[in-house]
């Protein structure tokens, strides 16, 4: 038998309705405060997001505003399609540097992605716990090493070694730079991929093993596809670092404004050329504007590459 009489302290229905019907007139009423704090929180969040976008926009405008002045003295065609960079004689062809940056980044990614993914799989899937707990902090430390140190290593160890095996007098060039960059981005890509692989739920591995797959099949067919997004993210971060890296590249690429005819020929990329020349140009010269323009192109290339990777990822990820 249910007691139909409400307990004596309960509210009458009309009283209950009143309690949430509307905010009372008082200025610092609790309901008013809650409403305002909610609004304020919203505004702060939106504001922060807008601020980040604004900063990016400001950087783009700043680089472009000065860079665009280049084209009052130099034709678009010359700047983008000529390889003759000789500012003292009024030649401003930046193609060498643009191609150099693209080639260096691609070569670096070509070498570093396979190695990093293998390292990540090894770390996440095969290493015994004690070794994993040793290797992860070591890789994290490697991420933080200043790039100039990597440059020194390239200069004193890598280049002499490359000279012996290639037979060139100067082994500075794309290969040396991309090996140094690979060593630099390897810890980044492999640690983030390692996290992505470790985050793949064990239930997928169980399912694969229970179907009679061995470890290799499980990793290739199940774990890596499931970790694809995280690995892509790692690749983007690594690539962004490779495109923009300056110090380590300057030290091993040779800094000569010429199209290389081999991987061992000294050449230059956007970053190395900017940093080598910016300190010696006049403030109002076309040379200076040209360097700004190159900075803008660098920015555009990195944004485009990131967008491209994102698009690829969407296209491939339909089923996940």
């Amino acid at each position: 038998m249910i007691d139909m009489n409400p307990p004596s302290d309960s509210k009458a229905p009309s009283e209950l309705g009143q309690s949430f019907a509307k905010v009372s007139g008082a200025k610092f009423d609790r309901k008013m405060r809650l409403r305002w704090s909610n609004k304020l929180f919203r505004i702060v969040c939106i504001g922060s997001a807008l601020f980040v976008c604004l900063v990016l926009l400001c950087i783009l405008v700043l680089m472009l505003r000065t860079g665009i002045l280049t084209f009052s003295n130099v034709s678009l065609a010359e700047f983008f399609f000529s390889t003759n960079w000789d500012p003292e004689n009024e030649h401003y062809g930046a193609l060498t540097f643009i191609l150099g940056t693209l080639a260096l980044t691609s070569l670096t990614m070509l070498i570093s992605i396979p190695i990093s993914v293998v390292v990540a799989v090894f770390l996440a899937e095969m290493t015994p716990p004690w070794l994993r707990n040793l290797l992860r902090p070591v890789l994290d430390l490697l991420v933080g090493i200043p790039s100039v140190v990597y440059g020194f290593l390239g200069l004193t160890l890598l280049i002499p070694w490359l000279r012996t095996i290639s037979g060139h007098d100067l082994a500075d060039g794309l290969l040396a730079a991309s090996i140094v960059l690979t060593i630099m981005v390897l810890p980044t890509i492999s640690r983030i991929s390692d996290d992505a692989i470790s985050a793949v739920p064990n239930k997928y591995r169980d399912a694969a093993y229970a179907l009679g797959a061995n470890r290799f099949q499980t990793v290739i067919r199940v774990v890596l596809p499931a970790a694809k997004n995280g690995i892509m993210y790692a690749v983007i971060l690594g690539m962004a670092r490779a495109i923009g890296e300056t110090m380590a590249v300057v030290m091993v690429i040779g800094n000569t404004a010429q199209l290389p005819n081999s991987l061992f020929t000294p050449t230059a990329v956007l970053t190395s050329n900017i940093v080598m020349q910016i300190s010696s140009v006049e403030f109002d010269s076309t040379w200076n504007y040209g360097l700004y323009m190159m900075g803008f192109i660098l920015l555009a290339i990195s944004l485009l590459m990131i967008v491209a990777v994102r698009m690829l990822q969407k296209k491939g990820g339909r089923n996940s």
């Binding site: 239930k203 997928y204 694969a208 596809p225 089923n319």
Partner: peptide, 17 residues
């Protein structure tokens, strides 16, 4: 615990392996 793949690929997974 189906794999994050299509229905077809889930069923075909074992035979392919």
């Amino acid at each position: 615990n189906p794999f994050p793949k299509s229905i077809y690929d889930n069923v075909a997974f074992g035979p392919k392996q």
